[in-house]
Design a protein around this nucleic acid. Structure first.
Length: 814
RNA sequence: GCGGAGUUGCUGGAGUGGUCAAACAGGAUGGACUCAAAAUCCAUUAGCUUAGUGCUUACACAGGUUCGAAUCCUGUACUCCGCACCA
């Protein structure tokens, strides 16, 4: 029998909506719970399986907490600014606004079909000027505090597009849209956020978070704190601070390497070397570090020399493709004897190799181990670890260096030469220079009429670009760069608490009630991007005095990826894509939700398997049939024990997102119901547990009991430990054992070609009720008689019953 | 290179010192029901052996700790993921 999922799901979707079942308000004295899924980018393709999975996890948890009596905030929104909308505009000619609106409408329809219990009244779109207005407001605050600043940065530039390209738009060093056009590297002034000011706090704050250990490690790694020494080298009478973790090898420096992307590179290059350097730079394809990786280390001489502050030697400076421009000062001191990279470089260009730490064989390779210093002037003989301190101390005294802390984390470049992002509230005036707009000018809305396809579309909105300077009323131009879309997701969680506030970012009382987020759910790919920015913004807003906490999300769960049947990522080109909406049509949303969390532990990657969907569907069909035909009766003690045991275990499993295990236990409980009567309470407790996974079918069955409210708003069952009795499990074991034994004997006997058709079991009198004749008989498919050994009228021709012992009944077959 | 996760039976996947030849699901095989099929139910699904027993081999591989290991430790192999020339 198939249950009518289409009718049921439509019915309850409408009821929830009509009665605003999941709309939330602050309630004084009621404990809150903020459950948040990372909001999606609304693509034109609609929901994919990854969405279906992660949002189901969020919904299950929100429903669980709601039933547990928390006042649950479970909102949804759309991260609707971003590149794909703009690319669609370029490709198909739709305006990003229209593309976005269509996509969102489609998303909403599908999300409602999945039964996700969002508070739709709080829905947000980042493309809404009432939302991005506050991006601009935060930008202005950053500017005031000196955390937003401009700096030259290398960018990928396509001559034909006349625009900057994102790293992912660079393919093999060429433009994604012009296969024959090589990318050039240009240095443009860009806006940055000084996230590095918070590096230390971002690092230490991790300790108190209940996040998966691996995501914390990833962040620590990304922030990358390291201790070292900054040494001042002199180049053309200018001091260049050079960062090193090996000050002990300062006497072994034989050349320097400056980054090919360094903004001051051409200050160093001599006239004679200029053409060589330029030729070299052309070889470097793009700023993308991905493109740089794997390249052989190469470089050319710049013609300049640096002076080693201790030895006063003249050291040649090379430009190299392997030095990062924005780590340290963009130039490194090379010690080929004790660093493998430097060693390779020195060998390649036949540069001097000077050994300063004793212990290796530098004719073969660099020696990076420990040892005593040699060739190091007055530091000779020192153990190199000791020398690190001594040399640093000495440099400090001479004002030639100091101890420093370095982070891998870099300042956040937020400028994008794109249309579909938040406009930066800045104008450039010929007289006044950079002028920040004021709060009452906000929002600076995106102009609708722009041309796509050539350069930054915003440049084509002349009316919008050309403005008067707010200070001197002279001609001025707006900033045409927009902000990275990660700014939107950095604070959206706060806006959900007060989404329609026109006066302030949010009402502090509302944020005070709901925040921080108690449970955040999203993909592991966001750990080093979004989740760092998200924490940074929170700390910044706290320093601004508008937040009282400093971590946005206390608990975080990363879900695995649902791959295709073949184990590969679902992708159109591989043809292994399964659309959630198709599954809903075929099996219903309840089935899909159940299947998604049955595959495996939700934090692991899994492969799609339609069999699991079918099995989930079968289960729900059975549940539906059982409950629609159910005649209520008394729940026996055994089922009651099982019920309470299940409640206890399922509650624990759900709390830890072990839904696969919880579902197994729910299904096992249901097995116990078969062919039995249960009372209304037992039935309802079962349905409540199932309701977090399968809300539609359980609402329907719940209402069949005459309930008028929603099961979604009822209460989570409580385990009564007193009713759990392990005796029942022992009984089951006893039954399994006797069935096994009988079957084993039959097997042996039949091998001898003997036929047996009746089974007699002899048990000690007080065990008689453990062995149910009809149940055993069904399982072994033969008629069964159970006798107590004390029974005088028992049938026992060979006197088997004399062997009977406790827990070991005797068996006779004939 | 650095960091992380993992390797369980035909398959997916539970299980983190004894109660484990190992949950649950799927598949396969046999049986019940049926004119037949589907659904449902029952059983089997490492091997040998046996009137319900006993034994062997098993949780990537090799060692170790322990009275006792899938589970703890060490090493090896493989897979996956993240960062990646961070000086």
């Amino acid at each position: 029998m198939k249950y009518p999922h289409k009718v049921i799901e439509k019915k309850w979707q409408k009821k929830w909506e009509d009665e605003k079942a999941f709309v939330t308000k602050e309630v004084k004295g009621k404990k809150k719970f903020y459950c948040l899924d990372m909001f999606p980018y609304p693509s034109g393709e609609g929901l994919h399986m990854g969405h279906a999975f992660t949002f189901s996890l969020g919904d299950i948890f929100a429903r669980f907490k709601r039933l547990q009596g928390f006042n649950v905030l479970y909102p949804i929104g759309y991260d609707s600014l971003g590149l794909p909308a703009e690319n669609a505009a370029i490709k198909v000619g739709t305006h990003p606004l229209k593309y976005t609106e269509n996509s969102i409408a489609n998303f909403i329809k599908q999300q409602k079909a999945m039964g996700w219990s969002y508070d739709w009244a709080r829905m947000l779109k980042t493309s809404d000027s009432e939302f991005y207005k506050w991006d601009q407001w935060i930008f202005l605050q950053m500017l005031k505090k000196g955390l937003a600043y401009r700096k030259k940065a290398p960018v990928n530039w396509c001559k034909k597009c006349k625009t900057v390209l994102a790293n992912e738009q660079v393919v093999n060093g060429k433009c994604w849209r012009h296969e024959n056009t090589r990318i050039e590297i240009k240095h443009l002034e860009q806006w940055y956020f000084r996230i590095t000011d918070y590096a230390d706090e971002l690092l230490s704050g991790l300790d108190k978070l209940d996040w998966p250990e691996r995501s914390k490690k990833l962040q620590r790694n990304w922030i990358g704190k390291s201790y070292g020494t900054e040494i001042l080298f002199e180049v053309n009478n200018e001091k260049w601070p050079i960062f090193t973790t090996r000050p002990d090898t300062i006497y072994g420096v034989t050349f320097m390497v400056v980054s090919a992307q360094h903004s001051k590179l051409f200050n160093l290059v001599t006239e004679k070397q200029k053409s060589m350097v330029e030729k070299f730079l052309e070889k470097i394809k793009s700023v993308s570090e991905k493109e740089i990786q794997g390249l052989e280390k190469e470089g050319v001489f710049t013609g300049a020399y640096a002076i080693n502050p201790l030895t006063k030697e003249q050291i040649p400076i090379y430009v190299g493709n392997f030095v990062l421009a924005d780590y340290g000062s963009g130039m490194v001191m090379a010690v080929p004897a004790h660093d493998q990279r430097d060693y390779d470089f020195a060998k390649k260009y036949k540069l001097k190799i000077k050994e300063v730490v004793f212990g290796g064989n530098i004719s073969r390779s660099a020696y990076i181990g420990e040892g005593r210093l040699i060739n190091s002037g007055k530091f000779d003989g020192l153990q190199n670890q000791k020398a690190k301190e001594k040399i640093t101390e000495y440099l400090k005294k001479q004002k030639l260096g100091r101890k420093v802390v370095q982070f891998k984390l870099r300042d956040w470049l937020i400028s994008r030469q794109r249309y579909w992002g938040t406009p930066i509230p800045i104008v450039y005036c010929a007289k006044c220079g950079i002028v920040a707009l004021t709060e009452k000018d906000l929002p600076i809305k995106l102009p609708e009429k722009v041309k796509f396809g050539k350069g930054n579309p915003l440049e084509t909105a002349k009316m919008w670009v050309n403005v008067k300077c707010p200070k001197c009323r002279c001609k001025a131009r707006r900033e045409t760069d927009t902000m990275d879309t990660f700014v939107n997701s950095s604070w959206y969680y706060l806006r959900y608490t007060d989404p329609k506030n026109e006066k302030v970012l949010f009402d502090p009382r509302k944020v005070g009630y709901w925040c921080p987020v108690d449970q955040y759910i999203g993909g592991p790919e966001h750990v080093t991007g979004h989740l760092i920015y998200f924490r940074f913004y929170t700390k910044f807003l706290r320093d601004l005095g508008i937040l009282k906490f400093d971590e946005p999300a206390l608990r975080y769960f990363t879900q695995g990826i649902v791959h295709g049947k073949d184990g590969d990522k679902m992708s159109k080109s591989k043809g292994n894509v399964v659309e959630p909406f198709d599954m809903i049509k075929k099996y219903g949303a309840d089935t899909l939700r159940l299947a998604l969390v049955s595959f495996a532990n939700p934090d692991k990657d899994t492969n799609w398997d339609e069999k699991i969907v079918e099995s989930s569907y079968n289960f729900l069909n059975n549940v539906y049939e059982y409950f629609t035909k159910l005649k209520l009766g008394k729940t026996d003690a055994k089922i009651e024990s099982k019920l309470h045991q299940t409640i206890q275990q399922v509650t624990q499993d759900v709390e830890q997102f072990k839904h696969n295990l919880a579902i197994i236990k729910i299904r096992q409980l249901f097995q116990n119901f078969y062919d039995k009567r249960i009372d209304k309470e037992t039935a309802q407790e079962f349905l409540k547990m199932l309701s977090i996974y399968c809300p539609f079918i359980t609402e329907e069955l719940w209402s069949n009991f005459g309930n008028t409210g929603f099961i979604s708003l009822s209460d989570w069952p409580k385990a009564n430990v007193k009713k759990i009795n392990i005796r029942f499990e022992k009984e089951d074991l006893a039954k399994d054992k006797i069935v096994n034994d009988i079957l084993n004997i039959i097997k042996i006997v039949e091998a001898r070609k003997e036929k047996k058709s009746k089974v007699y079991i002899y048990v000690i009198p007080n065990e008689k009720n453990l062995y149910d004749e009809s149940e055993i008989s069904i399982r072994i498919q033969k008629p069964v008689k159970v006798f107590a050994v004390s029974d005088k009228n028992k049938y026992d021709p060979t006197n088997k019953s004399k062997n009977t012992k406790p827990n070991r009944p005797s068996i006779y077959l004939e």
